[in-house]
Design a binder for these strands. Sequence first.
DNA 1: TATTGTTATACTCTATAACTATA
DNA 2: TATAGTTATAGAGTATAACAATA
Lengths: 152, 152
Amino acid sequence: MEPLLLDRLLLIGDLFQRDMARAFDGTGLTTARVHLLWVLQHAGPSTQRDLARLCDVTPRNITGLVDGLEESGHVRRTPHPTDRRAVLVELTPSAATTMAEMQREHAELNATLLAAVAPKDRAALERGIAAIASHLETLVAEAAEDRDRTAS
Amino acid sequence: MEPLLLDRLLLIGDLFQRDMARAFDGTGLTTARVHLLWVLQHAGPSTQRDLARLCDVTPRNITGLVDGLEESGHVRRTPHPTDRRAVLVELTPSAATTMAEMQREHAELNATLLAAVAPKDRAALERGIAAIASHLETLVAEAAEDRDRTAS
DNA sequence: TATTGTTATACTCTATAACTATA
DNA sequence: TATAGTTATAGAGTATAACAATA
């Protein structure tokens, strides 16, 4: 029996995550830490509170992730220029280089995978995936609202 | 800037996972445990060793997951009929019902998401995703081989 | 001798709650 | 009074290594 489209989409996410975890095996980096570095690369120096929002985890969790990344030399904590309660977290130069390289490889993988698709199917594929991602986002947001309303 | 196709695929996997975790919030079920139940539903009664292979985790990990699922009444350990070292893990009747319902909802979500795609794009979308999943599977398998060869 | 599962140990990710320092 | 971050505590998922029972 053919797998459902949804099953294939989930398989893709799973394969990607496993592959990334394996790529960083031995470097001390994990999925959660790489995600934080990724967010930092796109957002620039940020407070831990902002990182917590962007990663959708608790502030306490960010403390732990930043502790680990600081120890491994990937990020630095610097004082916030105007708010003495806050710290700014930023990539170290070497981590910034690593992340730029990772972004390049990410774009390359995107191109490789797209090249595996018949040219005549590519435009429809892009449209279809955009529609599905958008629709799923709506569904999840509605489910979250329902849950919040029930909880209150 | 438009997100890459790959980014949208990863977003879909992420949204789905979050949504599932939220759906099971409060029931004691987690992503890892639901995954094990899902595997059990498809494979039928299995030894822990087989479950470890199917879930791609260590046998020790399966011990922990089965302990939790046994306590919550989702699975039962029964003696293996011919191998006294092994146990067979199987769904309880109520968990089997739950999983059948989950599978129905899964198929329904698949249909809902497909309905969000323009009819003329659906065939190309299916072909494209199948091609990408297949290609990515090959890439990951090759990467794993490289790693194993380097390790030896 | 090899395999199945478990005990022992450890680390990461995650959360909630209480607390400190600052705004 | 509210906010940023940390300490304290806890639980789940994961792994490796050593071990018992059985094949």
